[in-house]
Design a protein around this nucleic acid. Structure first.
Lengths: 138, 138
DNA sequence: TTGCGTGCAAAGGTTTTGCATGGCA
DNA sequence: TGCCATGCAAAACCTTTGCACGCAA
């Protein structure tokens, strides 16, 4: 049995509105505090953790980042090929990547190399468009 | 200017000997302590961090694991034609991947998404053949 | 009313930092 | 002899846990 509470509702709404961004637990806490509707940090962690296990949000860690990031991925998980990340080594920006080609590669590696890729954990490192132009110094 | 110290040397030697395994800072500390040649933990962290920035070892985090893992990836720096890595999150094994499909993807991402992938730094995380069979428990 | 959810505070674990000392060049 | 590297301890962080109270059903 689970109860519907105001905190659960607010949290999910915020995460949904932030789709496409990655948030840390601290970000979430700060947001609600700034709204004058603080949610206890233990509640935030507990709720986040259960949403992860329900598959509604994803949890991941990026190198050089101390705390975990969470990201809304939807309440009805579409097909698995969700979202990969591209991380720029120069400016540190994180980009999202959805494309058929990568799903094809995922499939190829699964079949030919017998390795199941975990899209959530996999990050492509490299240099983004702006930094390739030499103009980015973040 | 940097000095060559016994700690640096021992640490690098140990990491190199552990190629293919993932080690936490705590693992490293324990190892040297068990050898009767303890290295202070702050030194371990500092040294590990600088090796990461030199590209000699790689740092990453596995889901559900509190502490970061480090892994030797070689002192051979960036040279073309090198391969991508597949890292099993369950058993920790590291696999090498050479294939046309991934080069095609690299090309695609470069052209269509304007992002230059760095093959050396990019690691695909997932589950290997053996662990997919359910027989692997680290 | 029942018992899950919440919030606070404290605990637990990992990583970083300050500072005096050690040791390489 | 300079000065970087080290080690210890403490601080800083992030996350989890214990417990009493609040609140949905």
């Amino acid at each position: 049995m689970t109860y519907q509470t105001k905190q659960k509702e607010m949290l999910l709404e915020y995460l949904k509105a932030s789709e496409g961004n990655h948030l840390t637990a601290a970000d979430v806490c700060e947001y609600f505090k700034s709204q004058g509707l603080p949610i206890g940090q233990s509640t935030v962690y507990r709720r986040l953790e259960s949403l992860v296990s329900e598959g509604i949000i994803k949890k991941y860690t990026i190198d050089n980042q101390a705390s975990a990031c969470f990201e809304y991925v939807g309440e009805h998980s579409h097909h698995e090929g969700c979202c990969y990340h591209l991380k720029c080594e120069k400016c540190g920006k994180l980009f999202h990547l959805h494309c058929e080609e990568i799903e094809a590669l995922e499939d190829h590696i699964g079949k030919e190399h017998e390795f199941s890729i975990d899209p959530v954990r996999t990050v492509f490192y490299g240099t983004c468009k702006d930094c390739n132009k030499g103009g980015c110094h973040d």
